Amino acid sequence: MAWTARLERLRTHAEQRFPVIVELTGRLLSGNLLDAGTRLAAQAFLAVIPLLFAIAAFTPHSVRDQLRESLRAMFGLTGRSDLELDQVLGSSADDSLRETTGAVGLVVALVSATSFSRAMARVCERAWRLPKSATRIAAWRWLVWLLVLVLVVLLQGPIRDGFGAGAWLGVPLFFVLSTGLWLWTQRLLLAGRVPWLPLLPGALLASAATSALALTARLYMPAALNRTLAEYGSLGVVLTLLSWLIVVCATVTFAVTSGAVLAEEPPLNRVLWRGGPPPRRG
C-alpha cells in the first residue's frame, strides 16, 4: 500500500539522518528498559530497608553515626524525618533490634539485597544487548557491588562536604567518584564482556544525572518527607522514597543505555573500540 511504502521511506530516512536517536529509541522499547528501571527502583527499596536495620543492629556506633550524617547530607533531612532516622539508627534500640534481627536475619538481608544487584546487572546487559551471565560467574559480583555501594553511601557525608573543604570541592569530587563508580559498575556486572573505554560515555551520563539529582534531592526531599509524614505517617515516607528511587533508577537506566548506543554508533565507536568498531548486535 502507498502509506506503508511512505512509512518505510520515512523510517529509512530517519535511520540515515538520526541513527543514534533511532537506535536509542529502539533499544529502550525493545528491551523494556524503562520498565526495568521501575523494577530496579522497587528492588532498591526492598534492599534498603533490611540493610538499614541490619546496620542499625550489628555495626558500631561510629558506623551508624556516619550513616546518619550521610543520609542527612543526601536528603537534607530536618524536623520530623530527621527524628525518624534517629529512632532507626539510634543507640537505644541496639539490644532489642539485634535480638529481633539475629545472625540469620543478617544473612537473609544480605542475600535478599542481592536482588538489587541482579536487577542492576540486567539493566546493563539489556543496554548492551548481552545475554544474562551464568550465576556461577555473576554471584560474587552481585555481592561485591552491593558491599561497595553500601560503603559509598556511608561516605556520602564527607564526600559531599569535600572532606571539610566545602561544596566547592564536594560537588566536583562527587561527580568524579560517581563516574568511577558507574564505570566500574558496568565493567563488574557485565562480567568484563565490554572493554573499559566504551563504558565511559554511560558512566559520564549516569554520573551527570545522579549529580544533578543529588543537588535537587536536598531541595525537594526534606519538605516532601516531612509533609507526607504529617499527613500519612510512615506510609508517606514509603511513597516519597519509592517515587524518588523510580526517578533515579529510570534516569540511570536511560543514561547507561544512551552511553551504550553512543559507544556503538559513529563517530565515537571508531575512537572507543580498539581494533575497529564492534559488530552490530541484533
Rank of each mutant, 00 (worst) to 15 (best):
C124Y: 15
C124E: 12
C124Q: 15
C124T: 10
E125T: 04
E125W: 02
E125K: 00
E125A: 13
E125C: 05
E125F: 02
R126S: 05
R126Y: 02
R126W: 04
R126G: 03
A127T: 05
A127S: 15
A127M: 08
A127W: 04
W128K: 03
W128P: 01
W128E: 14
W128T: 01
R129K: 10
R129V: 05
R129A: 04
R129C: 01
R129E: 01
L130S: 03
L130G: 01
L130E: 03
L130I: 02
L130P: 01
L130T: 02
P131R: 07
P131E: 09
P131G: 07
K132E: 15
K132M: 10
K132H: 10
K132F: 03
S133N: 07
S133V: 03
S133T: 05
S133P: 15
S133A: 15
S133G: 09
A134L: 07
A134T: 04
A134Q: 06
T135P: 04
T135A: 11
T135M: 07
T135H: 11
T135Q: 11
R136Q: 10
R136W: 10
R136C: 07
I137S: 08
I137C: 05
I137F: 04
A138I: 12
A138M: 01
A138S: 11
A138E: 04
A139R: 03
A139D: 04
A139N: 01
W140R: 11
W140E: 04
W140G: 15
W140V: 06
W140H: 10
W140D: 09
W140F: 12
R141H: 08
R141K: 08
R141Y: 02
W142L: 00
W142C: 00
W142A: 00
W142E: 01
W142V: 00
L143C: 00
L143E: 00
L143F: 13
V144I: 10
W145V: 02
W145Y: 12
W145L: 06
L146H: 05
L147E: 00
L147W: 07
L147P: 00
V148W: 10
V148M: 12
V148K: 12
V148P: 08
L149Y: 13
L149D: 07
L149I: 03
L149T: 11
L149C: 08
L149A: 10
V150K: 06
V150T: 04
V150R: 06
V150N: 09
V150L: 14
L151H: 02
L151W: 11
L151K: 03
L151R: 04
L151S: 08
V152P: 06
V152K: 06
V152T: 10
V152G: 09
V153M: 14
V153I: 14
V153K: 06
V153S: 12
V153Q: 10
L154A: 15
L154I: 14
L154F: 15
L154Q: 11
L155D: 07
L155P: 05
L155Y: 11
L155W: 11
Q156K: 12
Q156Y: 14
Q156E: 13
G157V: 11
G157Y: 12
G157H: 14
G157N: 13
G157L: 12
G157P: 12
G157E: 11
P158Q: 15
P158H: 13
P158F: 13
